[in-house]
Amino acid sequence: MNKEFKVLARPYMVWLSILVFVPILAMILISISNLNSSVSVGDLVISFSHFKLLLESSTLIAFRNSLFFATLTTLFSFVLGYFIAYEIKLSRFKNKFILLTIVILPMWSNLILRTESLANIMSENNILKSILGFNLFGNISGTGAAVLFGLVFTYMPFMILSVYTALEKIDFALEEAALDLGLSPIKKFWKVVFPLSLKGVVTGSIMVFLPTLAGFAIPKILSRGRIVFIGTIIENKFVYTNYNHGALLAVVILFFILGSILLLTKFDKEGETLL
């Protein structure tokens, strides 16, 4: 490409530098100082007094919940999502576009509304019960199972898409070669197909793990406020305009994300295969 076009990237460099770094720096500053809406920049005092929050049992429980559910959600969506992606790849149905569309179509309708209707049918008296005559989900409203179900089926499409993208790129000749050399179909899968699709699994896992870890709307709606995630606490701090505490917790989440990005760049050197 013509080197002259470098100029076109310049505004974006400015935009990214400002919008990536300034908010994060502001957030870090607010988390370690007394700066808030009533304190002006003039009498700024740096203090680590907010860090006490991190040791409170409610915060620790929230972190444990977030990590626990994020890990479980990633595991479930990996197993189920990989299966579906693999089946789509194997399917004799020519138009893969339609199959992928079936998987991602639900993502096009409003997430909050979907979660809310899921919460409705998980409660004791619900619209499906009045039609079917029995309770499809039992009465799991407010439990961890309800939250897990909602999280898995909300974020699984991301896993399916990235695994499918990786699977699609595998040369069929490699699989044929593996079979010709005497591997059983199962061994062929484990020794050839799966390692080659690992990149997609890592990308997919991160795309499931991070939003789950930091989410607050889905757990709040599906657990009826009973299971507190770290995101839920941040939201509360935001609602009660306690920005210092909110910022501190957001900074902690940021560290988890940085770790994941480092992991991703190990598998994805150019950072351009995210989609």
């Binding site: 957030m27 607050f216 989440i253 940021l254 990005i261």
Partner: peptide
């Protein structure tokens, strides 16, 4: 890649 809540919260700040 950044979590929505971090992006949203930091932009808000």
């Amino acid at each position: 890649l950044n979590a929505d809540i971090v992006t949203g919260f930091s932009l808000m700040l």
